[in-house]
Amino acid sequence: MQDIQRPLDPLGPLLAAASLSHQPVVLDGGFGQLIADEYPHISQKDGLWVSGAAARMPNVIKDAHTRYLEAGADIITTATYQASANGYKAAGLVATEAEADALMAATVGLAVEARAEYVEAQAEATSTGAAQKRRPLVAVSLGSFGATLGNCSEYSGVFGEGIAAQDVYEFHLQRFSMLARCLSTDALRDQVDLLAMETIPSAVEAGAIVRALDELGQRGTDLPAAWIAFTTRVPDQTGLGEPIEDAVAAATSSSRICAVGINCVSMHVVPELLANISRVSPVPVVCYPNGQTWLGSAGGWGDASAQVSPSDFAKHALEWAQSGAHIVGGCCKTTPKHIRTLVDAVACAGGVPTPHV
C-alpha cells in the first residue's frame, strides 16, 4: 500500500481521547429523515431533501442540531447533503451564484450557531464558568452526485447515459469551490472542522472527489479534511459492484481524506462490511448505518416495527467500535434518542471521550 504523509486533522484530538478511554467517537444521527418524519408536511418535490427545508425552516434545522448536541454527539453534520448551486436554482430558492453561496453559508451557519450556543450554555451551567467543556466538531455534509439527481442513483452509482467520471469530478469541483467561498466569510472562517462526503456508491466517484480536493489544494484553496462514507447493499462490494477494497484505496489515495467508512446501509451488512474496510484502511473508520431497512424508491421503508430501538442500536454500535469503527453514529431512522442512548452506553462502558476548548 502506498505510504501517504497525512497532515494533522481535526479528528486527531477526538480520536486520541477515544483511544485512551477505549471508546468510539460519537457522530449524530439521521438528519433528513428525522425532519421528514417529524414534519411530514414539508414538500420534498424540490429534490433538495433537508437542504430545502433549511431554506424554508431554519429554526427547525437549528433545533435538530441542538438536540443532537444535547444528546452528546461529538460531531454534528450540516443540512447540506443535497445542496448545490444548480439544485438551489432549480428549486426556485435562488437566482444567482451569489445567492446560492449565501444560502449554503446560512445553512452551514445553523450548525455553527447551534454549537456556539451549546458551548456557551455549558459554561453558564457550571458554578465557576471554568470547567472543561465539550466542543463538538461541525462536519459539512455533502452527498453523492447522484443525490442531486433525485432518482436514488446515489445507491447504485449508475447516474445515467452520457454522464462520465469527468462530469462527476467537475460537479464536485464546482461544489467544493462554492463551499470554499462560503467558508471564507467572516461568519464561517475557522468554524467548520471537516467534510462528510456521504452515501458515495463507487470507487469511481471516490476518485473524482479526491481528485477535486487535490485540484483545489494545488490552486491554493484548502478545504477542511474530509471523510468518505460508502453505501452498498452487500458486504464486499460498493453500490456499483466494485470490490470494497478498491473503493477504500481510491478514497485514501489523498492525504486530504482523514477517515473512510460506510453510511446509509442496512445494519445486517455492517459487521462483515466493517471487517473488510478495517482490514485495508490506513485511516480511521466511520460507521453510521440506517436504523431501518430501505427497500428502494418504489418500496420505501420496511415495516416500521423493524426500526431498531435505541437500546439495540447502542448495543450494536459498541460492537462496531470493538470491530474497528473509530467513529459511530446513525443515518436514516436514527434519532437524538438513539444517540443519547449510545452516549450513555459509551459512558457505562468506560467513559466518553471529551475534547476541550
Rank of each mutant, 00 (worst) to 15 (best):
G157N: 08
V357W: 05
V280I: 13
G47A: 03
G157W: 03
P310L: 09
G299Q: 05
L69V: 06
I200F: 00
S156L: 06
G207Y: 08
A212R: 04
R189P: 01
T341G: 01
M1D: 10
Q132H: 09
S184E: 15
A121G: 11
R56G: 01
Q174E: 15
I35M: 10
L20V: 11
Y169E: 14
A345R: 11
N86P: 01
A229T: 12
E97F: 03
P10Y: 05
I35D: 03
V352E: 04
D222H: 05
V328W: 07
R211T: 10
S144E: 11
A18T: 09
R134E: 07
M267D: 13
C287W: 09
G302T: 09
E215Y: 06
Q166M: 12
A203G: 14
H316L: 08
P235V: 05
M178N: 10
P282L: 11
A36K: 11
A95S: 13
V94R: 05
A116N: 15
A85C: 12
R340Y: 01
A85E: 15
Q174S: 14
R56T: 08
H65L: 05
S51L: 11
V234E: 12
P13Y: 05
I35E: 02
A249L: 14
E120A: 15
G291Q: 08
E124M: 13
T335Q: 05
I42R: 09
M57N: 12
V308T: 14
A125P: 00
A226I: 11
D246I: 08
L69R: 14
S141P: 02
P235G: 11
A131G: 15
L137C: 09
K45V: 03
A125G: 14
S43R: 06
D193W: 00
I327R: 03
I257K: 07
S281K: 08
C332F: 04
S84V: 13
V204F: 01
D193Q: 01
K333L: 02
F171E: 11
T341L: 02
P7S: 13
E154T: 03
S266R: 03
D46C: 02
P224H: 10
H41R: 13
R233Y: 01
Q82N: 05
F145G: 03
C258T: 12
V265L: 02
P282V: 11
L213N: 03
G87D: 11
V352F: 02
K333E: 04
V119A: 05
C152T: 06
I277E: 00
F230D: 05
A102D: 14
R135S: 10
P243A: 13
V286M: 12
S305I: 07
L142W: 04
A349N: 15
T341R: 11
S144K: 03
A306Y: 00
L142D: 07
D303G: 02
Q191N: 06
V248G: 01
V60K: 04
D3R: 04
H316E: 12
Q322D: 12
L103V: 13
G241Y: 02
V204S: 01
K315H: 09
